[in-house]
């Protein structure tokens, strides 16, 4: 299958036609509109190598995320960055290309923190291998991590090695009624203390905290933090998959990324705050520029996550020298500009 993918790329290069790389198509809503012949990767599936005692799994990128997670769960392990799937069809390639992480991210790391190696097909149709299956590797530039969040614009990712972690023995969720400003303060105070926090979310005037670890460690932390213990594992799954009521509206949905302790921003709209304050969701009809100006002033950036104009600047505009660097990098990997043209930025 990898050979066929390479051939398809070589053909596209010869024809000078763009390709849209597609896994499960579960994240088609994300990023800018792109055009081109569909290059389906979902047939390139299966676990290549999994040794639980090494905490490493190598998997073809067409593999369904749910299938990978099931294989890990059988060994008591998990993808610690809890990637949102947004549908059963979601593939591992989409997880890496979109670079989206779930509730555990601020406490454990993002997709890129768990990627150890990758194989990619570049715009010349060459199948290349970077990084590896070991925990530490500084031979050559870190091309595998560069693929994370690049939305397929640098190459077709065909295989990825992830570091995996044991599933914690115990989880507990606490809930407490708090206004947004105090909730953000509280999340940041806790983060400065050695507590086994694995998720935080403020919505509808309530702060949810998840603790994960050993029986005794979690029990001790529950005592220290107080609040109501709720039996609500489903809450975190709904948050991760954006199935909470908050996410069902038709208004454009913004993802706002700011330094975690920034107080609530005075931008009109409805907010849901997670990641200890570092990731905030905003439903707002306001103009793109108005939102971005305020977020940038707070030291952050804003992505038009769902809805709105998908042909405009969906991602926060880059300063000129950085945009130029992005274009040169694109050129270094994909000189024919074949892969997902414009999905990330115009001209990239």
């Amino acid at each position: 299958m990898a050979v066929e993918l390479c051939e398809a790329v070589v053909q596209a290069a010869a024809d000078g036609t763009a390709v849209q790389i597609q896994g499960g198509n579960s994240k088609a809503f994300y990023g800018r509109e792109t055009a081109g012949r569909v290059l389906a990767v979902s047939g390139h599936s299966g676990v290549v190598d999994y040794e639980p005692s090494e905490l490493v799994v190598t998997v073809r990128t067409g593999t369904a995320v749910s299938a990978l997670e099931a294989a890990l769960a059988r060994e008591g392990q998990m993808l610690a960055f809890e990637p949102p799937r947004f549908g059963d069809a979601a593939t591992v390639g989409g997880v890496v290309a979109s670079g989206l992480s779930g509730p555990r991210r601020p406490y454990c790391g993002a997709v890129r923190d768990f990627v150890l190696g990758a194989r990619i097909i570049n715009g010349r149709g060459e199948h290349l291998r970077f990084g590896g299956q070991v925990m530490k590797n500084v031979a050559g530039y870190d091309v595998s991590r560069l693929m994370v969040g690049a939305l397929g614009t640098l190459g077709v990712i065909t295989e990825v090695s992830f570091k995996v972690l044991p599933v914690p023995v115990r989880d507990a969720t606490l809930r407490m009624a708090l206004p947004a400003d105090l909730a953000i303060q509280r999340m940041n105070e806790w983060a400065a203390r050695p507590l086994p926090i694995s998720g935080t979310c403020h919505t509808n005037g309530e702060l949810y905290v998840r603790l994960s670890g050993s029986e005794s460690g979690v029990a001790a932390a529950v005592n220290r933090l107080g609040g109501d213990a709720v039996d609500d594992a489903a809450f975190w799954e709904s948050l991760r998959e954006q199935r909470l009521d908050f996410f069902t509206a038709q208004t454009p949905l913004w993802r706002v990324s700011v330094p975690p302790a920034v107080p609530p921003l005075a931008i009109e709209g409805e907010w849901l705050t997670e990641w200890g304050g570092a990731q905030r969701w905003l439903k707002s009809p306001l103009a793109v520029e108005t939102i971005r100006e305020q977020v940038a002033a707070a030291g952050g950036h804003a992505i038009l996550f769902r809805g709105g104009d998908r042909s405009g600047p969906v991602f926060h505009p880059l300063p000129q020298p950085l945009l130029a660097l992005h274009q040169r990098l694109k050129n270094a990997f994909d000189p024919g500009r074949l892969f997902n043209p414009g999905r990330l930025y115009e001209g990239v």
């Binding site: 993002a110 990641w275 950036h301």
Partner: peptide
């Protein structure tokens, strides 16, 4: 200063 930034890593 936030946990991620726009564009390539």
């Amino acid at each position: 200063d936030s946990l991620d930034s726009p564009g390539y890593d």
